[in-house]
């Protein structure tokens, strides 16, 4: 790999980064762009935060009963915080595709393609920056949730676990928003396409109420909805109990009966969507004329 020729000089210059170097260069660029756009950062946090406050205030009393029937001793704020964490991951993942469309529109996509950077490293760096932002945002939501009275049964380790679940969950939606971006190559279509899905996905899942309290058709849909698995895994860590109702797994211990199958489902989904996104991205950046 690192034969002398890898450091070959062209035009008298040392040229060529390592794979990790290329990842880092792109990671830095996308973080810089995120910081330059505090508006996007704030908006993707604001809506989930508003949900958190409004839902607990408006539905807290009503929903609290439904929650405590299934999970005795758990209040609605504690029930809701993991769902909001997943909502943040969902809202933030959309910006991945939007960033790609913007790059295609302002020519940076092509500029990167003519550079000697490794193309896989380019996308890994960009995605890493987005995942990093999701982690920070979930951490903020967890902090706010605790301030609002939510109880995190598993403490700091649990918080890290919820962030990890959020990241695993975000993969399929990051991939999905990139697929939209490559297919539409249009900023507005990507935003609308991804945002339109967000609310139905959230409401038709176990996010805001226990599934037992919802109509049968929603329960059926929720079983197929990735949000259910993300929320259930995060919630299992939050309350340290087996909260999953769509699958009945008993092979593990307590909360793991939710976490293991949910994370497995999310990983599978992430790989499936990721494969589609990777193949579309490599077609979009390939030099083959189609």
């Amino acid at each position: 790999m690192s034969s002398p020729s890898a450091e070959s000089t062209v035009g008298g210059r040392t040229a060529g980064n390592t794979f990790a170097g290329d990842v880092w260069v792109n990671f830095k660029r996308w973080n810089l762009k995120a910081v330059r756009n505090p508006f996007v950062l704030v908006v993707s946090l604001a809506q989930p935060f508003i949900f958190l406050v409004l839902f607990t205030e408006v539905f807290g009393n009503v929903a609290g009963g439904a929650v405590s029937r299934g999970l005795p001793g758990v209040d609605y704020t504690t029930f809701l915080v993991p769902a909001i964490a997943i909502q943040v991951a969902l809202a933030s993942a959309v910006t991945s595709g939007i960033g790609l469309v913007n790059d295609i529109e302002n020519g940076m996509f092509e500029k990167v393609l003519v550079s000697p950077m490794n193309r896989t490293a380019v996308f890994v760096g960009k995605t890493a920056a987005e995942v990093f932002r999701i982690a920070v945002q979930i951490a903020i939501i967890l902090g706010l949730g605790v301030l609002l009275g939510a109880e995190l049964a598993t403490g700091v380790v649990g918080a890290a676990g919820i962030i990890a679940v959020g990241i695993v969950f975000s993969m399929w939606f990051i991939a999905f928003s990139n697929v939209l971006a490559v297919l539409t190559r249009d900023q507005e279509s990507t935003i609308i396409g991804a945002n339109l899905l967000q609310l139905p996905l959230l409401f038709l899942s176990s996010a805001f109420l226990p599934l037992a309290a919802l109509p049968g058709w929603i329960q059926t849909f929720a079983r197929l909805n990735p949000v259910t698995y993300g929320v259930d895994a995060a919630r299992a860590i939050m309350v340290d109990e087996d909260v999953m109702t769509v699958l009945d797994v008993t092979a593990f211990d307590g909360a793991l009966n939710t976490i293991v199958p949910a994370v497995a489902a999310l990983v599978g989904l992430g790989v499936a969507f990721g494969a589609v996104a990777v193949s579309l991205l490599s077609r979009a950046s390939s030099s083959d004329v189609r």
């Binding site: 070959s8 062209v10 035009g11 040229a15 060529g16 660029r29 810089l32 762009k33 330059r36 756009n37 302002n106 020519g107 940076m108 092509e110 500029k111 003519v114 550079s115 000697p116």
Partner: peptide
């Protein structure tokens, strides 16, 4: 790629930077 500079027809810069 290492040995060329390329300026595309459409101006290509990152407007946020």
């Amino acid at each position: 790629r290492k040995s060329i500079g390329y300026m595309a027809q459409e101006t290509s810069i990152d407007p946020e930077l």
